[in-house]
């Protein structure tokens, strides 16, 4: 076999193999994103399960924060019942995080509640699940960044375009959470 034929064969193999490898890598990235979101979703569900306990524990004490409690219940019902997109889920959970944070700050005003064994246990569980959700978000962001790199970088961006893969959003801390908690304002609301 002469040199020319070898080069042609190598080129043909490269033309077939190379796109196949990119295709598989992109699929792998997409699946990793979905997989990680599923794990995060499981953690979010764990938090939904804690919400009824939280409401039951605090509602007798916190007469002035009834609106917040009602809002948390509504958000939870919406989160577990609807068929939401990833973005909507993210948005809804941001709201839940914010509302639970508000309750935890408001508890400072109720010494009996703050020192009750039930609430202390619940608070520990909530802290744990919040920390797990935070870890889940960081894991999701890391995987989505890798996916986004693959979708936008040459040469895989060509294949990604053909496959209809688009850039995905990462979790960001919303403006409300970024600001330091202003306890005075929280109680005014």
């Amino acid at each position: 076999m002469d040199m020319f034929s070898i080069i042609i064969i190598v080129l043909i193999v490269a033309v077939i193999i190379f796109p196949l490898m990119i295709y598989n890598a992109l699929i792998r990235r997409k699946n990793q994103v979905e997989n990680t979101f599923a794990s995060l979703d499981a953690l979010l569900k764990k938090r939904y399960d804690l919400i009824p306990n939280l409401i039951a524990t605090v509602k007798n004490y916190m007469e002035f924060e009834k609106d917040t409690l009602t809002k948390i219940t509504e958000l939870r019902t919406k989160a577990i019942s609807s068929n939401l997109t990833t973005e909507e889920k993210v948005e809804l959970n941001n709201e839940i995080t914010h509302a639970i944070g508000k309750v935890q700050v408001a508890v400072e005003n109720y010494p009996d509640l703050k020192s009750s064994q039930n609430f202390l246990q619940l608070q520990a569980s909530l802290n744990e699940v919040e920390e797990q959700i935070s870890a889940g978000r960081r894991a999701y962001n890391a995987i989505v960044t890798q996916y986004n790199n693959a979708v936008e970088m040459f040469p895989s961006n060509i294949m990604a375009k053909l496959m209809g893969f688009k850039r995905r959003g990462v979790f960001t801390i919303n403006e409300q959470e970024k600001q330091n908690v202003d306890v005075k304002n929280l109680f005014k609301q």
Binding site: S39, E131, Q132, A135, A139
Partner: peptide, 10 residues
């Protein structure tokens, strides 16, 4: 488990 790793390594 990468979520657990991040849960530990805050």
């Amino acid at each position: 488990d990468q979520i657990e790793a991040r849960f530990i390594l805050s």
